[in-house]
């Protein structure tokens, strides 16, 4: 089993490093994930993307289209990659506590 430790509590991860139990998401978890996903410092911009993803997921139960994410947050795809080096689908979604997008992606 994979775990990530947040404030002394072990949180279970799946093989891809995504959290298994979405309710266990916390801002501290984001900070812990940031290190593994190549995010050096969490800025306001990061939180803007993460919060957008979380809100969208809460409403629709799925990650938004990448282009919609860019348009609504005002970041270009390149800027998103600068923020989250492992990309919007695998990096940003992981930090936001969303399940890993699957299929032909």
């Amino acid at each position: 089993m994979n775990y990530i430790e947040v404030n002394g509590v072990k949180i279970e991860l799946d093989e891809d490093g995504f959290i298994v139990e979405p309710d266990l998401w916390s801002e501290d978890l984001v900070k812990a994930f940031a290190k593994t996903e190549g995010v050096e410092e969490l800025t306001e911009d990061h939180w803007k993307v993460i919060n957008y993803l979380r809100d969208y997921f809460k409403q629709f139960g799925i990650a938004p289209m990448i282009r919609k994410l860019c348009k609504d947050t005002g970041f270009s795809l390149k800027e998103i990659y600068d923020l989250f080096p492992s990309g919007p689908a695998k990096g940003a979604c992981k930090l936001a506590g969303l399940p890993k997008p699957t299929g032909c992606v």
């Binding site: 409403q59 629709f60 139960g61 799925i62 289209m65 282009r67 919609k68 348009k71 997008p101 699957t102 299929g103 032909c104 992606v105």
Partner: peptide
């Protein structure tokens, strides 16, 4: 995982209908 999504939503990614509508509008 894909089989589960397909069965649940009719697509591999697991996009529910409200999200399909939202994407189409976008």
């Amino acid at each position: 995982g894909i089989a589960v999504n397909m069965e649940k939503s009719g697509n591999n990614m697991g996009i529910p209908k409200p999200a399909i509508v939202d994407c189409a509008e976008f």
